[in-house]
Design a protein around this nucleic acid. Structure first.
Lengths: 242, 242
DNA sequence: CGGAACATTGATAGAGCTCAAGGAACGTGG
DNA sequence: CCACGTTCCTTGAGCTCTATCAATGTTCCG
């Protein structure tokens, strides 16, 4: 049973822009199907030129780059609402891979239609650029964190950001949000070793600042974390959804 | 004397797409003027909502983020052909600052016209998204380098990338290319301390791998550098120019 | 000449890495 | 139902890479 765009579960959230009838009609045509994948599935591969673009409907995944020396950099987390494959869409080649961490459900779009979107749906095209600029913003912030902050600061930054993103999506329950990733994934995202990631988490647990177990992350002292991460978590007014 | 779009000095380079007459007409209307600035001038400020967008015609600058603790992360170098201000254009706020390092000449565009560009010039809109995706690609690579590589590897990566970019623009002279930045800038770009940046450069100089003096960077053993940086420098076929 | 900006170099310390080992949870097959 | 392998988390020890501190050198300019 495929979800219809007019009934998109994501779009009901406040953070997402609403669409008029014509726009929904276009999206319905643009969408060619739905894809359900198991954990561990590679959705897009670095260097490949996928004929398909995706929007995450449910579940979580990882965007990452593999280095020739075997190391891995997690470039971002893929949460519901994320648009995957834009690089292949405009540049002809993915610059990172995307892998499912949990079971996922994705809207599938035909890449060949992307050009029509730019030609006949300038609002959607604008939204796409918005999403791209947003990804760029996030990457810039990640770069600044990894380049300039200590392990403890990075950890607070990363988990605060993740929690805030979940909050926008209505996935939080009080201080808690889902966190289906391994410590190794977190380490690869923050540019830390697994061991040091574990020890840093332990310190934060000992201080009752956070909890992380059974795939649940709990932030019990966000003020302290924001202080260490040197950020104030801004809440997004709205964001587009493709 | 303002450069006319039909006579754009950048567009003559092979790497840039060519435009037809209609497209040039639009660009001419989109372009509202030219700006010359001295070294040190801040072109765009993080958090601001600039009414203007720029394309770099001549000169070089830095894109950077300042952290509350006073540290700075250089997010990218701004070279001729770079489009500045897209974040403010689509998201309403710059997420990093841009500063001139050398004297610069910039094409100035009216941000209010950006929406018209999306509505009436889908090819240009597509190009804009291309540029945004390219920036995202670069940031992802930088993140992987800073997150996963040693100081020596990062240094080789950064300088190779910079040199290759200059090469695309025809700014190289044999192994040499301009490098008007301070070691502190390089340090802030690579997430290293100034002292360690200096020592790493010294090692590479001692090994005759590179030279860096009088604002000129020389790569004398690119093979070795590529080996350390774990990259192969790909040459871009073409890229759009706004 | 004095000061500012930038590059260079040595000494020291510490944050974070690697190596190594053990524990907990879980699924599979005998 | 238990043994065993696998995956992930945890912890200790030692070491190294890189940061920080401090000082000196160089160039340029007012």
């Amino acid at each position: 049973m495929v979800t219809d765009c007019s009934n998109c579960p994501l779009r009901k959230r406040d953070v997402y822009d609403t669409l008029n009838t014509d726009e929904i009609t276009f999206m319905r045509r643009f969408k060619v199907g739905e894809l359900k994948v198991d954990p561990g599935t590679t959705l897009l591969m670095e260097g490949s030129n996928s004929p398909q673009l995706f929007t995450v409907l449910k579940g979580m995944g990882l965007r990452y780059k593999l280095l020739p020396n075997g190391r891995r950099q997690v470039v971002n987390f893929a949460l519901p609402g994320a648009f995957l494959g834009l690089q292949a869409g405009v540049m002809g080649e993915m610059k990172h891979s995307v892998e499912a961490t949990t079971p996922m459900v994705l809207c599938v779009f035909d890449r060949a239609e992307l050009w029509n979107l730019f030609k006949s749906e300038p609002e959607r095209a604008f939204d796409l650029t918005w999403l791209s600029a947003m990804d760029e913003h996030f990457l810039g912030e990640a770069l600044a964190s990894i380049g300039q902050m200590s392990a403890m600061e990075r950890m607070c930054w990363g988990l605060l950001r993740f929690h805030a993103r979940c909050d926008d999506l209505g996935l939080t329950d009080g201080d808690h949000c889902p966190f289906p990733f391994r410590q190794q994934d977190l380490a690869d995202a923050l540019g830390l070793s697994l061991v040091h990631t574990n020890k840093t988490l332990m310190k934060l647990r000992d201080k009752q600042i956070l909890s992380l177990e059974d795939g649940k992350l709990g932030l019990h002292n966000r003020e302290k974390m924001e202080e260490m991460a040197m950020i104030e978590v801004e809440r997004l007014a709205r964001r587009p959804l493709i």
